[in-house]
Every structure is written in C-alpha cells, then in structure tokens.
Amino acid sequence: MFLINCPYCGERDQSEFSSGGEAHIERPKQPTELSDDEWADFLFMRKNIKGIQFERWNHSHGCRKWFNIVRDTSNDKIHSVYKMGEKPPKV
C-alpha cells in the first residue's frame, strides 16, 4: 500500500488509482508499414523492470486524469510524478 501524489488532486491512497503500465510506448507512426515482429513488440512486449520504472497511472476514482510516475518496483517507492506530455525526469 502506498500514496500517490496526483498532480491535480494531491496525495491520495493508491486504491483510488489504476495502473496503465509502462509509459512512453509510442504508437507506430506508420502502422501500415509495420512487420508482425514490430507489431508484437509494440502490443505485447514489456520491459517489466525490477527497479526504476516509468509508468502511466490514472486517477480513476478522482479527477480521472492520466499522468506519469517514476517508481521503484522493487520497493514501491515513488521517485517523482509528472504530467502527460512533460519531459521524463532524470533519475
């Protein structure tokens, strides 16, 4: 159990949020030119990092806005929170 500092609402319990998984997976710019391998990579393959991971979260039981967090998945400690479209912080 941990707290997440929503950039719009402030600190709230994690149970108010939904995890959207790995952040910064860009949708292919030319979908028609993608090979099956590249599609598999985009759709299914994940870094699933043990350690510092960049993630998308949604405040689903609050403001319902999406944002990014940087979290250590080995101990659930959150390093920073930043809005969608902002540059990811250096860790």
Partner: peptide, 18 residues
C-alpha cells in the same frame, strides 16, 4: 516473476508483467 529480469540480460523483452 523474475523471468523478465533474466531475459533482460540477453536483451530479450518478454510479454510479461510481474
């Protein structure tokens, strides 16, 4: 649960979330 950690040692990404 640690399959992705081992896979990353040979630059393989797996379709897994732990």
């Amino acid at each position: 649960g640690h399959s992705s950690v081992i896979a990353s040692m040979v630059d393989i990404r797996l379709p897994l979330e732990s």
